[in-house]
Design a protein around this nucleic acid. Structure first.
Lengths: 240, 240
DNA sequence: CGTAGTCTTGAACCGCGTCAAGCTTGGTGG
DNA sequence: CCACCAAGCTTGACGCGGTTCAAGACTACG
């Protein structure tokens, strides 16, 4: 992977920030890019640190978190393949970024990327589109954090993972689905604005009520996708 | 105001989506724009409705909310002068938009605006910048919704209003500040992921503890800005 | 002076957090 | 092959913060 991959073979070629670039633009990006690999649980950047690159997630899952002075922390972004990290026009990170699984990033030096953006409308157009999608997802999430019960939050989270997985295989989620959670219980708690104990209890409750089956630490299979959506309190079924 | 105002006299001329447009671009926008006025408490659009315009808030305050099927609702955006509403490239609204005070919008037909965006990089560049700021604010908000106590949420909210007001007069907030809340208790509750009763109780508690003074329904004066920030749990003091 | 809308206050309840053990799993070394 | 340990997860008991339900109190406006 490191350095060698051609953009033509890239798994996120048609979903990432570079999706709409062809020909010259694409060639320039290909020239500029460099890969970085991280093991699960590694920090990518810390809030407030200088950040002189931007990147796309190629494989794996990373998280963005923010924390209060006393250590309480909330996840504010879940980055999956094709998601963008960093902000052109700002030199320090606004959030902590950490890998949840092994991760490969496709990076660009921030300065070069900004220059390229000015010359290639496709790039900034796509970035605008992606940023707006992120904003929609953040708002969905705010609804979850502000108003949903613990059980609904867990169900919503599993539904999101199920939908993402279904999207990869290009079919709409339905019926019985087996999946692997990309997060530990602790990361789920940080994501959902809960404690790890509550996450664990609600997972157990959903299993007891026949909504899901649990296999090992990360394995979950939903008995019925529609049932899970019911449990999620509605609305989240639509967007994101 | 209606129709007559020249962009040169516009109070949000150098902060809105049009901020970086000059000369021809500016003239085109001036030609396209039309104003709409709403009284306090009026709906602008409903979630799922067709929306064939985009707009900037010129004066007043509007809110974006999302609701679950059973009626629980969460505010997901607080729109102040210069903030942008609507999304080029999407024809239905993702949230309910409602006015909190009397509001004047500077509107553009969505189709025309999109065409203009393609030809004028300044416009889409500024929109990207604003959307990223919105995303940062949403993430700040997620931290509040996920991890802050009721008292901290109230203090954070008042701090945001104080900071916005200070920004208008171009000085940094400090010491004793008088301000007027742009939201009812009910809207504050919707914003903060609380009930109206809890908002009321915590306002009383902050008054009792000498952090704020309350004058009428909307009037608040903070005795000491720094003290309020302490009460807000930290972090929110920085961004947004 | 009466009424409606908004806000405040009180009392009881409950969902989730906190604290404290256990349990499971996988890895290490004897 | 098994004892040991650490990390991650589950479970239980208990308490607190915020919700719920139910009255008042304050304005603004007829």
């Amino acid at each position: 992977m490191r350095g060698g991959m051609r953009c033509g073979d890239c798994p996120i070629r048609y979903r990432a920030v570079c999706a709409q670039c062809e020909g010259d633009e694409q060639a320039l990006l290909e020239q500029m890019k460099f890969y970085r690999s991280y093991e699960a649980g590694q920090p990518i950047v810390w809030e407030g640190d200088r950040m002189d690159f931007v990147a796309s997630v190629v494989t794996g899952v990373a998280t963005l978190t923010r924390t209060l002075e006393d250590g309480r922390t909330q996840m504010v972004g879940l980055l999956q393949p094709s998601d963008f990290i960093g902000r052109p026009g700002r030199d320090t990170a606004a959030c902590n970024a950490t890998t949840a699984t092994d991760v490969v990033l496709c990076c660009f030096r921030r300065g070069s990327f900004q220059q390229l953006m000015e010359r290639t409308p496709h790039l900034s157009h796509r970035l605008l589109e992606m940023t707006m999608d992120e904003l929609d997802a953040a708002r969905e999430w705010m609804l979850l954090l502000g108003r949903k019960t613990a059980r609904e939050r867990i169900a919503s989270f599993i539904a999101i993972i199920a939908r993402r997985q279904a999207a990869l295989t290009k079919r709409r989620p339905a019926g019985r689905i087996a999946l692997e959670l990309p997060l530990t219980r602790e990361a789920m708690a940080t994501y959902l604005g809960l404690t790890i104990e509550t996450v664990s209890r609600q997972m157990t409750a959903l299993r007891r009520d026949g909504v899901i089956e649990i296999a090992g630490k990360r394995g979950v299979t939903l008995t019925d996708y529609a049932r899970l959506i019911e449990e999620s309190g509605g609305s989240s079924g639509a967007a994101a």
